[in-house]
């Protein structure tokens, strides 16, 4: 008889995520994986490569480009697409582009509504995707804790928190009518610490924005915002100063707060995280707009 070690928690999480990804590929005719270039997306991409090896990914990756992402994120995205040979679909909301939407001018709510929520709906409608794989984790935010792994969306991409399908064992209901879709969250059960440990163990590539470096930042509403290009208003840029900072999450640069840090390696990031007293989302401005903000956004169709 073989001696069977119990799988470690990371190996169990990995196997569960791979199971979910394969279930999507097997059950849906036109799936897509959201690619936001952040650490969670990097882990998902890594898991998907494992799930379908030696074949290539059986679905494309979709990046909703708000045109306000950090420059480095876009470079990283294009480099990975070339190295791994996955199909990459990029979409920006043309109406928003025409209106020249800017978080500095229009504020985070309008920017997010037009360039993120609306752009996502457009991309999904254009692609006609029936399953959309996302990298949300249940530990991120309270409303996420209650969402299913296979989360049903009606024709308008809306989530109904009071009318979710029961989800039992590892059996996922993938039945939908035409025009409806399912959002699938393969890393639902991972925590931020799990993600970092896994990136470390598996040597997964991530943008260097996560590591501390001297960067030019300004203070906006008590949050440190990096000067990533000259679209930042001059009067703001005037107060810019160099600081050792890094980012705990990546998104639109004017909406993503940097934290002071000296962590220049993965183990140092993990150490910093373990000693941290504030949660990951604190740097994200969109959650602070109003209480229950994320829940409202999800009902409207934001991921």
């Amino acid at each position: 008889m073989l001696t069977q070690e119990k799988l470690t928690h990371l190996k169990q999480l990995e196997a569960e995520s791979i199971y979910i990804l394969r279930e999507v590929a097997a059950e849906f005719s036109n799936p897509v994986m959201m690619y936001s270039i952040g650490k969670d997306s990097s882990v998902m991409l890594h898991l998907a490569m494992k799930a379908f090896a030696p074949a290539k990914l059986p679905f494309p990756l979709l990046h909703v480009d708000t045109l306000w992402k950090f420059k480095e994120m876009i470079e990283f995205r294009d480099k990975r697409a070339q190295e791994l040979g996955f199909e990459l679909v990029i979409h920006s909301n043309p109406d928003g582009v025409a209106m020249d939407i800017s978080p500095f001018v229009h504020g985070s709510k309008i920017h997010t509504d037009v360039m993120k929520t609306e752009a996502l709906k457009q991309a999904l409608n254009q692609g006609g995707y029936d399953a959309i794989i996302g990298g949300a984790r249940r530990d991120e935010e309270k409303s996420r804790a209650k969402e299913r792994i296979f989360s049903f969306r009606d024709k308008g991409h809306r989530w109904d928190p009071k009318n979710q399908r029961p989800e039992l064992w590892n059996i996922y209901n993938t039945s939908i009518a035409k025009g409806e879709s399912v959002r699938v969250f393969p890393i639902s059960n991972w925590t931020e610490l799990d993600i970092w440990q896994y990136i470390y163990l598996e040597n997964i590539q991530i943008p260097s924005l996560y590591l501390a470096k001297e960067r030019e930042v300004v203070e906006m509403d008590g949050v440190k915002i990096m000067v990533d290009d000259e679209r930042m208003p001059k009067e703001l840029r005037a107060s810019a100063k160099k600081e050792m900072v890094r980012f705990r999450t990546l998104g639109c640069y004017p909406l993503t707060g940097a934290i002071n840090s000296t962590a220049t390696t993965l183990p140092e990031i993990i150490k910093e995280m373990l000693l941290s007293t504030s949660s990951e989302r604190e740097g994200r401005l969109i959650d602070k707009d109003q209480e229950g903000a994320m829940e409202l956004k999800k009902i409207e169709g934001y991921f």
Binding site: R138, K146, P161, K162, N189, T191, L193, E295
Partner: peptide, 29 residues
């Protein structure tokens, strides 16, 4: 722990929610 806004107002939990924590030995779901 009581996540969703709607239920916070009612003062009850209405659905299954998943939480996570870890000790030195185990991760808990």
């Amino acid at each position: 722990v009581d996540g969703l806004q709607s239920e916070r107002e009612q003062g009850i939990t209405i659905d299954v929610a998943y939480r996570f924590f870890a000790t030195d030995n185990r991760k808990f779901i």
